[in-house]
Design a protein around this nucleic acid. Sequence first.
DNA 1: TTTGTTGCAAAACGTTTGCAGCCTC
DNA 2: GAGGCTGCAAACGTTTTGCAACAAA
Lengths: 147, 147
Amino acid sequence: MADKISYEQIEEKFTNYLCKKKQRKTPERYALLDYIYNNEGYFSAEQIHAALQETYRVSLTTVYNTLNMLIDCNLVIRHNFDKQKAFFERAFYETPHSYFVCCKCGAVKAFTDKQIRMSIKQKNFTNFKPSHWLLYIYGECKKCKKK
Amino acid sequence: MADKISYEQIEEKFTNYLCKKKQRKTPERYALLDYIYNNEGYFSAEQIHAALQETYRVSLTTVYNTLNMLIDCNLVIRHNFDKQKAFFERAFYETPHSYFVCCKCGAVKAFTDKQIRMSIKQKNFTNFKPSHWLLYIYGECKKCKKK
DNA sequence: TTTGTTGCAAAACGTTTGCAGCCTC
DNA sequence: GAGGCTGCAAACGTTTTGCAACAAA
């Protein structure tokens, strides 16, 4: 949940994870980490795949495979805003997020609220080691209310 | 987001919704509403389908169809804890929930926290009409930490 | 050289849809 | 009786898996 970490430290975290698990440091894996960490916001696997075509070509299979690793080592967060597809977002560089989700059109808007953040942070967990949290507030957005 | 509502009032809400939308009041639809509202917790579509075999047989298609209606009229909440499948829960009878989700084994545990609830309730939204909220705290549970 | 990785195609999975027969209204 | 509803089977979109060629260690 920390902030203020350089990209070198992020890479190091991933490298450590790969070493510990006896997995290989392939260029595809680092290309994906690089993409996620140099772009703000959340992306579908398909979007990441398309974006990577321009720089270092990676198959969709490898995108999914690598995303699962990055989630496993807490470098990436998976969002399941709706039933359809997952979105992926870097876990560092931003404080954990809260989101408005419109039930009608599916629009998503991130926001931060100090009060909410503090009250969640203060919560004590016995038998549970929290890594991150996600708050979704569902409702109806301006556009849909007008209809 | 209210509490203290009788099951008759829930049924009435559904009936009103069906009338307004010019949709029919079939026994299948009420069997599903009844099941969801008389069982605490969250269930997958498959679980609801299996459970209904014992009382009023309903196809999986109708289970999905009806759940989507119940979500549309805010009587049911859909959870997307993980990528796999959705879980469904009655929207009344309980205050909106917060959940621990274990990243390793997928175990989910509901909890309530007054402080958190208050701070979310106090949040003011311009251009957005909130209907409910869901907080997921991800981490590692006791069992997985031991391994 | 060994063993993990890639990328393709095919499978798997939960969910939705098309349609014929059925049931509310 | 008209039109919405059910349930089956088939389709759908996202994600995973099997496998042969390949590359990191």
